[in-house]
Write a protein that binds this DNA or RNA. Structure first.
Lengths: 254, 254
DNA sequence: CTAAACGTTGACGCTGCGTCAATGTCAAGC
DNA sequence: GCTTGACATTGACGCAGCGTCAACGTTTAG
């Protein structure tokens, strides 16, 4: 009979799995009165029916939108309408976003200042390279004019082009940092995909050897050796990861 | 002698005022070992010298950029370089921003769905107006074709124009909500400036009476009476504030 | 009958202080 | 020498939303 289904209720773990919330969360919602169980067994166990499940779904939906539990409670009590609550919350989110915008701008400015100048990216890159132990090797292999060529390329760009290039470099750095944070290995598929992107990015800089095996490997070493470069990849730890990933990639594909 | 100045140190309240932090914050920084006082009196009082003050300034600077106290400690200990810490933090801020972006998008979508359709803004505005107690008065004064005209105006806009108009309306709503939250009075200068903006915005909609005294006042009443409009201003409370501000403005200027 | 799985009620932890509370100290004026 | 007010101290709770033990009953499958 279907009445058996209609009267059914579930244990705390069962709705936890049905809804995606944890049992701890459900007990918390009970504690603060947001979602009391529909029934409590003689053993103290909490049981929930489909009514409670529906209420839970609404709670989780609003929570995903970022509303606080008290605000959610007001909506469910009918004291506040959905649109009212969401509009208010939307406003607060916009404030937060502006705050982040300002912080990001301030940090970018600070980082650039710490580097000692805005347009030194390219100079630093090759200048830094020269500072490494690989200087001789590089000059022998790719010529002493590599620096000059790249410098001319950089100076030839418009401000917008420079900004776009910088943004691209930052996105790459951001992804490297995320990769490190996620705990994957340098030889994993994801890391190797990043390495490929990195090499393609390098190849887009004229005057450099580009996708050349020893150049890529040497560059990786430099990221670790020179803090100014490592900073783009989340510091020494990140730079080490990038170096290892690049080496694996270069030895396998270049 | 200048040596008297060089050896000076300050009480906790004094550096609090010098730095802008509160004394509670300073005691907290002492508790967690982030900024110990340079000297502790026999009475247990904390005293700070110019060295400690400089350290405090660095702390506050990094804190403004959003870094956590443990991260700041690492930087000051020299375990992490400035650029490393800032780059890592920058990455985390970007993640947060994307999260907010997604939430904002989801909420806007939800609100529009709740309203029952995207492009009903203008229709709702005048339709809702008609539903109020002011319908007769409005029709008598401004003619029955006001709705039709405005409807035609809205439908004549391109998608981009509509979006831009919607964004403008949302910014206005956002500012109203901020005004209410800040606790100012409806007849304050700031609120009246908003009212002016609001009226100018109204006047930009063809087919409406625009900056007409009774129209503006009646519209304000409608915001309170009809929840669909009040939602744009943070709910009933916000709508009431807008109504009062508009009335004051209209009676004084129109 | 037993072990595994699941249930319960506490209670601490995290971020960065704001905010009392209870109490001691110091400088200035009478 | 005493009072007063400003300033100092060390706790300790509170906030948002659960995660994470801990210590201990209950149900269920084998």
């Amino acid at each position: 009979m279907s009445s058996a289904d209609a009267d059914a209720d579930w244990s705390i773990q069962e709705i936890a799995r049905l809804s995606g919330a944890t049992s701890r969360t459900l007990r918390h919602y009970d504690d603060i009165g947001l979602l009391p169980p529909s029934r409590i067994g003689g053993n103290g166990y909490r049981y929930y029916d489909e009514h409670a499940l529906a209420r839970l779904q609404r709670i989780l939906l609003l929570r995903e939108l970022g509303l606080g539990l008290p605000a959610i409670a007001e909506v469910l009590e009918g004291q506040t309408s959905n649109t009212d609550a969401l509009t208010t919350h939307l406003h607060w989110l916009r404030q937060e976003q502006q705050r982040l915008d300002r912080q990001i701008g301030a940090i970018e400015t600070t980082i650039r200042k710490l580097r000692g100048g805005e347009q030194l990216m390219a100079e630093e890159m090759l200048d830094g390279f020269d500072h490494t132990q690989y200087k001789q090797e590089v000059e022998e292999r790719w010529g002493k004019d590599a620096y000059a060529k790249s410098d001319a390329w950089w100076r030839g760009m418009s401000a917008d082009e420079k900004e776009s290039w910088r943004a691209r470099a930052e996105r790459l750095g951001s992804d490297w940092i995320a990769a490190v944070a996620s705990g994957i290995a340098p030889d994993s598929d994801d890391a190797q995909a990043l390495a490929r992107r990195h090499v393609e990015w390098l190849a887009s800089i004229p005057g450099t050897p580009g996708a050349h095996r020893d150049y890529v490997i040497g560059l990786g070493e430099m990221y670790v050796a020179d803090e100014r470069f490592g900073a783009n990849y989340g510091g020494t730890e990140g730079a080490t990861f990038v170096r290892d990933a690049l080496r694996v990639y270069a030895e396998a594909n270049l």
